[in-house]
Design a protein around this nucleic acid. Structure first.
Length: 241
DNA sequence: GCGACAG
DNA sequence: ATCTTGTCGC
């Protein structure tokens, strides 16, 4: 499928909104996953209170089912605008795509830090990056953007409760760890909600966040610190804009 | 108009 | 998102 430039870099929020509606339309909500040999977490890091400074992205691969950790791919880009709820993807996706392109072997499943379809226009960052790269993607968010949890979420790890927005189940609240706040697991692209939850539980290992997400978070932070100490050598190569 | 608001 | 030390509980 042809990918319009506006899906990556729209000229303004009006065009971005239109792009999100189109991306949501292109998003697939059923399982269409190839045999997964490589999983990866995707996350970004930035300087504190510097909403327009560079975004450092990391994609951290993990061999499956051996859980062998492979070297992360990183890239740094300047975001087009400061953070606006609902438009996170346009800040982080360019850096994530740049990091993805440096990977010799492409992962068959991505764990993205943020929502999938649990978004006002059903186009959270996990859906955004999943559709752009045409790779199965799971959204794992730490708080709610829209909708509300229905019913009671059990205290035991593995418990779930639906996150409903405007009458639609857009994600599942999952208790991945005892006495910890739940995470919200949603469809990014080419995966069902049920399968997404299974993957997250299989990789949580008694922690709140799944392993790929933790690895990507660490790698993005490492990239940011390296960039701060010597911007020339860091950044994964390539232009910042 | 008002409140809510991923990272 | 990020800063920072200790502290509490399984």
């Amino acid at each position: 499928m042809t990918i319009p430039g506006d899906w990556l870099s729209p000229p303004d929020l009006k065009a971005a909104t239109a792009a999100q509606r189109a991306i949501a339309e292109a998003c697939e909500t059923r399982d269409r996953i190839n045999s997964v040999r490589l999983l990866a977490g995707a996350d970004t890091s930035m300087k504190w209170r510097d909403s327009r400074g560079p975004i450092h992205a990391a994609i951290a691969p993990l061999a499956w089912p051996e859980r062998v950790i492979l070297p992360p791919a990183v890239a740094t880009r300047i975001p087009p605008f400061a953070y606006v709820p609902g438009y996170l993807g346009f800040r982080e996706v360019p850096a994530l795509v740049a990091a993805w392109e440096t990977l010799a072997e492409k992962p068959g499943l991505l764990f993205v830090d943020g929502h999938g379809r649990a978004h006002p226009r059903r186009c959270g960052i996990a859906t955004h990056v999943g559709v752009l790269l045409d790779v199965p993607a799971i959204g794992v968010a730490k708080s709610i953007l829209c909708g509300r949890v229905e019913g009671d979420l059990g205290e035991e790890p593995g418990s779930t409760a639906p996150l409903v927005d405007r009458g639609e189940v857009v994600a599942v609240a999952v208790r991945t760890r005892a006495r910890a706040l739940p995470v919200y697991v949603g469809i990014g692209h080419r995966i069902s909600l049920e399968t997404a939850v299974e993957w997250v539980l299989a990789l949580s290992e008694g922690r709140r966040l799944p392993l790929p997400t933790r690895l990507a978070h660490d790698a993005a932070n490492t990239a940011r610190r390296a960039f701060s100490s010597s911007p020339r050598e860091a950044g994964g190569g390539g232009p910042l804009a």
